[in-house]
């Protein structure tokens, strides 16, 4: 009971502190901007811990964060091996191949209205295929190891990336294209100096969406066959053994990897599309 009381009390105090901080004259400073979400996150963990202990929730339903943290700290080699297998090999390879080929295909079909109209619906169809259907097929085609996971990722990110790039390539203004024409610029000059830069906000939109899709794809694909390592493999086997603390530790790795991945792409975007009204700030 005291655990519950402590959790409630902590919650109220943290809420009060955050409200005070957000409304204070310091609310625009860097420190406060960082402190508010940190306090929020810590509160969630403390309340979680307090409620689980206070109500004596069985660890199979929900382990307390402290138990997850202990498991995390003591399983670092395994978590690292899984991370390399699933994230570095499966996700990143598939992401780079999928996004790269989508941009290349978008440029290749750019000059052909026929191909654009033909390929976009086909791409749409492929994107609509459920991953639980395509993943086993990819495993049949490319084997149990990370190659088949990368293939699933390619299938997942290709279409959103293609659509965004095609849209981006059409984003330059008619006047800007006329300007290039008055210089008698070639197709490639116009592409490199006008249309690709103008497409960057769209391309990065696709790249950001794809980070999340890629990670989900790589993890879920491992449910359908994999060597005895990988985040998806670990989650499915540890659930079977009712070792929920390990499952949560893998989820924590996935959450951290996903956030850092997204953040890194967003950071590059800031550098590349600094000129766009949404980034000027």
């Amino acid at each position: 009971m005291s655990w519950l009381l402590f959790a409630m009390l902590f919650w109220v105090v943290a809420l009060w502190v955050n409200i005070r901080l957000a409304n204070s004259s310091l609310s625009e400073t860097r420190a406060v901007k960082l402190a508010v979400p940190v306090i929020f996150g810590v509160t969630v963990l403390v309340v979680w811990e307090g409620v689980v202990r206070g109500l004596e929730v069985p660890p199979v339903i929900l382990p307390p964060p402290s138990a997850i943290a202990v498991k995390f700290a003591t399983s670092l080699p395994i978590l690292w091996e899984d991370f390399v297998q699933t994230f570095i090999k499966g996700t990143l390879t598939g992401y780079i191949l999928g996004c790269g080929s989508a941009v290349a295909v978008a440029i290749a079909i750019d000059r052909s209205d026929f191909l654009q109209r033909g390929l976009l619906p086909v791409g749409n169809f492929i994107a609509a295929l459920p991953i639980i259907g395509t993943a086993p097929i990819m495993v049949m085609w490319f084997g149990f190891d990370w190659q088949s996971k990368a293939a699933v990722v390619v299938a997942m990110v290709f279409f959103p990336m293609l659509v965004n790039t095609v849209q981006g390539l059409a984003a330059s203004e008619a006047m800007q294209r006329d300007l290039m024409k008055t210089y008698s610029a070639s197709y490639w000059q116009t592409l490199l100096k006008l249309r690709l830069p103008a497409a960057m906000p769209f391309i990065f939109n696709g790249l950001k969406i794809s980070t999340t899709l890629a990670l989900i794809g790589a993890i879920v694909a491992e449910f359908f066959g994999s060597p005895i390592r990988g985040m998806g493999f670990r989650i499915s086997t540890e659930v079977g053994r009712l070792a929920l603390d390990m499952v949560w530790a893998e989820i924590a790795v996935a959450a951290i990897a996903g956030s850092v991945f997204y953040g890194a792409v967003a950071l590059i975007e800031k550098g590349v599309t600094f000129w766009h009204p949404s980034q000027r700030g």
Binding site: E173, M175, D178, T182, L194, H276
Partner: peptide, 12 residues
């Protein structure tokens, strides 16, 4: 050289 009604400079 053609000068359009809007400046049309490339923001990047």
């Amino acid at each position: 050289g053609y000068v359009f009604q809007a400046a049309g400079l490339f923001p990047w």
